[in-house]
Simulated assay, not measured.
Amino acid sequence: MTGALLIMLAVCGGLALGIAIHNRESATPAPAAMPPVFGKLTDAPVLDRISGSVTVSAGATLAVRVPAGVITRAGAAAGSVLENEGEVLTTVNEVPVLLWLGEVPNYRALGPGSSGADVAQVQGVLRRAGYRISDPAGEFGEHTAEGLYRYLRERRIVPRDLGGQPISAEEWRSVGVPLGMAVFVPELPVRVSGGPCGTLGAQTEAELCSLEFGAPGFVLEVSVADAGRLEPGVAVSFTLAGSVVSATLGERLPATIEPGAQGSGPPGSAPPAAAEGEATGGGPRFALLVPADVAAVAGQQSRAEVILARSGEGFLRIEGAAIRDRAGGAPWLRARSGEHLAIEPGICAEGYCAVSGADLRAGTEILISGELEASEAPG
């Protein structure tokens, strides 16, 4: 009797426990369905693009070197642009350093008896200033001396002989161009870079400053990952001094190693070679073809955008996550109304895809993710 009672109690207890577990599971709510997220078809283009940076480089650079001395008048400021022949770059020991046009650098003192291409350059300076020079081209004769003497006096510059000593009016035939009194540049204007051309009271240095001239160069730098996607001829746009510049991508530039770059090898070993078109500390670089009328100064920088592909006419834009595939593989979109819209996909980039189709209209709401609510799903 006692055993039968115990068995009955165990059976009843198990039944009660099973009912309690079932009731607790029934009370646990089912996971909530993801709320639907919608986007709109727009007529904005889909752009496959790469970002980079553009740097303006000097067309050519000339180092300004003058004899040892003291800067007695402040030189042209860094960044200043000198447009006229005869402008003063700086003054050393009270001798002005003049900017003249010429291909041959001023490497020697010039005066009576001198001859050569550099003398012809001085004669060219004098003729452009309005002085008549009858001496043979490249021969420093009396007419060249007379013209130079008058040129200096009319500009309130003390005439000097070859050695740099001041001369009197009676000594005009001995006038010359002391070494360092002129800097010849192939063209004007020039821009001062690398610091001012002399600080008042300072001793002259081996390289006083640099002059930049010629058409500026434009260089695009991108990441290593993006460089492989670029081909010459693609469109590049960037903003310079508030204006949008449209350029064309040129060839990839050779690798460069910055001076003083340190390698990981033993002391005295050569630094590691950079990848083609890659500067130490930067990414691969490409030349840019820019319209000639674009005004730029070496050192300017800007963000750039390279357009690799653009969606064509008749395409609309939608988030890529909205595109669905039927069993047969034909892509489609689900409208908020529940309608299935057949599409022809175009390019996809930056999370968006270009789509076209007979039933597509800009402004139509499209299901991106989640499920339609019962009231929105088709009956």
Rank of each mutant, 00 (worst) to 15 (best):
A4G: 11
M8P: 00
A30V: 11
A30Q: 13
P36Q: 12
F38Q: 09
L41F: 09
L41E: 05
L47N: 12
G59L: 04
A60T: 05
V66Q: 08
A74F: 05
A76C: 11
E83R: 14
E83C: 02
G86T: 00
E87P: 01
E87Y: 00
V92P: 09
L101Q: 01
L101A: 00
R108Q: 11
G116E: 03
A117K: 10
V119G: 03
D135T: 05
P136W: 04
F140C: 03
E142S: 15
A145F: 04
Y151W: 08
R155P: 07
A169K: 09
G176D: 01
V183A: 06
F184H: 02
C197V: 12
G198P: 09
G217N: 10
L220W: 08
R229Y: 12
A235V: 07
G242L: 06
G242Y: 03
S246K: 12
R252K: 15
P254G: 11
P259M: 10
G283S: 13
A295L: 09
V297Y: 06
L308N: 04
F315A: 02
D325T: 13
A330S: 07
P331T: 02
G338V: 11
H340S: 08
H340A: 12
I343W: 04
V355C: 01
V355R: 01
S356F: 04
G357E: 03
I368E: 12
S369F: 09
E373D: 09
E376D: 15
